[in-house]
Amino acid sequence: MKKILLYIVVIIAAIGLLTNLDYFLNMIVSSLIFLLVLGLIVYGIYYFFILTPSQRKYKKALRKSKRKYRQKSKR
């Protein structure tokens, strides 16, 4: 009788843990998505409204140069 009661308690605890884990993981994923979107918005504001056109051209050329030299070093 005690073993059956123990198994019932363990099963109920496992079900409760799994349902809470699902809720907890859902909160974490939604928070990460929110932070990612917020970061993209802040970067977009920085890139398009704070940087001057010449600074944007410099950053673009810098990325292109880095990409070019990475490909050469892999060969």
Rank of each mutant, 00 (worst) to 15 (best):
I41F: 06
R70H: 09
V37E: 08
I45R: 06
I33E: 09
K72M: 14
R70P: 01
A13I: 08
L32D: 05
N20G: 15
P53F: 01
V42K: 03
K74I: 14
L25M: 12
K64F: 08
S54C: 00
L25H: 10
G44S: 11
L51Q: 01
S31W: 08
L18S: 14
I50N: 00
L5R: 05
K74H: 10
K60C: 01
I41C: 05
T19I: 15
Y58S: 03
N20W: 13
V42H: 02
T52N: 05
L35M: 08
K74E: 13
L40V: 07
I12N: 11
K64T: 14
R56G: 00
K59H: 08
A13C: 02
A13F: 07
K64Q: 11
L38Y: 07
I11V: 14
K3E: 12
I33T: 06
G44M: 03
I12M: 12
K57A: 11
A61V: 03
L6D: 10
L5M: 06
D22Y: 15
M27S: 15
K59D: 05
Q71C: 06
S65I: 07
N20S: 13
F34D: 09
I11L: 13
L62T: 07
F48P: 00
I4C: 06
I28G: 03
L32S: 04
Q71G: 08
F34K: 12
K72I: 15
Y58T: 09
G44P: 00
T52M: 04
R56D: 02
L40M: 09
G16Y: 04
A14N: 04
V42C: 04
G39M: 01
L18T: 09
